[in-house]
Simulated scan of single mutants.
Amino acid sequence: MALAATLLPAALAIIMFGLGLSLTVADFRRVVAYPKATLIALACQIVVLPAVCLGLVLLFGLPPALAVGMMLLAASPGGTTANLYSHLFGGDVALNVTLTAINSVLAVATLPLLTNLAIGWFGGSGTLGLQFGESAKVVAIVLVPVAIGMAVRRFATAFALRAEKPVKIISGVILFLVIVATLVKEKDNLGDYIASVGLICLVFSVISLSVGYFVPLLAKVGRGQAVASCFEIGIHNATLSITVATLLLNNTQMAVPSATYGVLMFFTAAGAGFLLRSRTAVAERSTV
């Protein structure tokens, strides 16, 4: 996963600039004016998903290191890739950007807390401090390029409007190349990863995406915001959790769930996106 750790942040920064081209300050004003979607998504991310993951870990009977690795993954904030998926499949990108920023800041406290509780519960080793640097890095990758893109939209509106569709296509190509590069890089390890934690990672990914979409819908949140929540909650920052496991906890086995999930999530998220797009098309036809 070293390739993802170096390539993905740079690729996502470019993608975030493209997303900024489609955003205005008014988009964020709507998020502040209607905070329900933000609060529901944060509650799902911080409370519901760790509880779901704990249940899955106990159900599957994972050994301690892999169990802690799964809880570390669940405690990680939403990945910046969620912004791209939301952009491609009709979500409220302003909500995604807001949630990613808030989640990344909150993770400074929640990620060490939940991980240390898991280490104590499952009998792992090591403790985790507050990772301000990693949180600041995630925020910077999201907010700075988006702010630049928004500035271009504000002061060069005609250019931004012309560039929006080509940039969306380029963003999809970048995502595809990242997926291919990840699969090529990890081809020798994929079999072992999938054998040990593939099923639980797949189930966790599907549940995360489902919770992210259906809980906001049940709370009468708008469809675009529910799509944004689906990807924000359903796509965890696997690169961050791998870094924490290998460099800070010095335990490569704890990184296996995140490495496995980091490959699977591209496909489960894409599948969710196409299903949501189909539901939207059906809903639009039924209203005609």
Rank of each mutant, 00 (worst) to 15 (best):
D92G: 04
F132Q: 06
G91R: 00
V139W: 07
T115L: 10
G78M: 10
L99E: 05
L113I: 10
A140E: 05
L143G: 00
S104D: 14
N103L: 15
R153S: 05
F132N: 07
A82W: 01
L106E: 08
L73A: 05
D92M: 06
S86M: 09
A94G: 11
V146A: 01
M71P: 02
T80A: 15
H87F: 13
G126S: 08
V97Y: 00
H87W: 14
V142H: 02
G90R: 07
L130M: 15
G124L: 12
G78D: 08
T110V: 09
A140Y: 07
L106C: 09
A75E: 03
S135I: 08
L128V: 04
T81H: 02
T100N: 14
V97H: 00
T110W: 06
S76T: 10
F132R: 06
A107L: 09
L113A: 15
N96Y: 11
A82G: 04
N103W: 09
L117K: 11
N116D: 13
V144A: 15
T100Q: 09
L95T: 12
W121R: 15
G91Y: 07
L84F: 15
A75D: 03
T80I: 14
R154L: 12
V144M: 13
R153L: 07
F132G: 06
G129A: 10
D92C: 04
P145I: 03
T98D: 11
E134A: 13
L114W: 05
V139I: 13
Y85N: 07
L130C: 12
F122P: 01
A147D: 03
M71L: 15
N116Y: 01
M71N: 08
L106V: 14
G78F: 10
L113E: 08
R154C: 08
K137L: 14
V105A: 14
I102C: 10
L106K: 02
A136D: 12
L117C: 10
L106G: 04
F132K: 03
V108N: 06
A94R: 02
L143H: 02
I119T: 06
V138C: 07
I141S: 11
L111P: 01
G126T: 03
S135H: 08
T100F: 12
S86F: 07
L99R: 01
F89E: 00
G123K: 09
G91H: 04
H87Y: 15
L106T: 02
M150T: 01
G79Q: 00
L111Q: 00
N96F: 05
Y85K: 03
L88M: 14
R154H: 12
S76R: 02
T100I: 14
L143P: 01
S104G: 11
F89D: 06
R153T: 01
A75T: 04
F122R: 05
G91V: 08
T115D: 12
N96M: 12
R154F: 09
T98I: 10
V97L: 00
G133N: 13
A101H: 10
I141E: 09
V152I: 13
V144H: 07
L73P: 01
K137R: 15
T110D: 08
I102Y: 04
A147V: 12
G120V: 11
V144P: 10
P112W: 12
A151G: 15
E134I: 14
K137P: 09
S135L: 08
F122M: 10
A109V: 13
A147P: 08
T80S: 14
L143V: 09
A140Q: 07
L84P: 02
